[in-house]
């Protein structure tokens, strides 16, 4: 049901030419994805998706739209090669899912690797009931540091490209 909605919204996004409507639809798409994650019991991921995908990116996209205009120009020719690439890649991915273990299967490789150790030992080792937090911030602290640096780098990149100082120079000219 939710997946069906996602597909419908995705098709609408591709078909529409009005970019304001497209941005609103991407926000709705993210909100649906968040609901989907809740249905899969991944509340932390759903929380992030709702806040970032539906909230902040929508605002940032609208801010960008204020700079570049509201209508997407019509594509000059139909792009058959990209369509073929997308179809082949999608087909390969769907084919790969046939090999995946059944959803929720306790014998799936991902549930037999480090997951049992986290589930059994993390409450004792970190004293935290939320295992997502203890994995993110403690066991995988190094990765999260990398993530934070990535966000910081993105911010620095935007500031370098759009930052305030050059604007002042332009006004002086």
């Amino acid at each position: 049901m939710l997946l069906g909605f996602l597909v419908v919204i995705a098709i609408a996004i591709v078909r529409l030419r009005n970019l304001v409507a497209v941005i609103m639809l991407t926000g709705i798409y993210s909100l649906h994805a968040a609901l989907f994650f809740v249905a899969l019991d991944a509340v932390d991921v759903a929380f992030t998706e709702a806040a970032v995908g539906a909230g902040i990116s929508t605002v940032l996209m609208l801010a960008t739209l204020g700079l570049v205009g509201h209508e997407e120009s019509r594509p000059s020719s139909r792009a058959w090669l990209p369509l073929a690439v997308v179809l082949v890649t999608g087909g390969a991915l769907v084919f790969a899912t046939l090999d995946m273990p059944r959803f929720g299967d306790p014998d799936a490789p991902i549930h037999r690797h480090v997951a049992p150790r986290y589930i059994i030992d993390s409450p004792r080792e970190t004293g935290l009931p939320n295992m997502v937090t203890s994995v993110l911030a403690s066991y995988r602290g190094y990765d999260t540091l990398g993530e934070t640096v990535v966000i910081f780098t993105a911010g620095v990149g935007v500031l370098l490209l759009l930052g305030g100082r050059r604007r002042d120079d332009e006004e002086q000219e």
């Binding site: 902040i56 605002v59 940032l60 801010a63 960008t64 204020g66 700079l67 934070t148 966000i151 910081f152 993105a154 911010g155 935007v158 500031l159 490209l161 759009l162 930052g163 305030g164 604007r167």
Partner: peptide, 18 residues
């Protein structure tokens, strides 16, 4: 701290530009 201020910095950059 980093996430909130980075988001804000990006927003300031875009909105200030406009």
């Amino acid at each position: 701290i980093t996430v909130s201020t980075t988001m804000l910095a990006i927003f300031y950059a875009f909105a200030g530009r406009r």
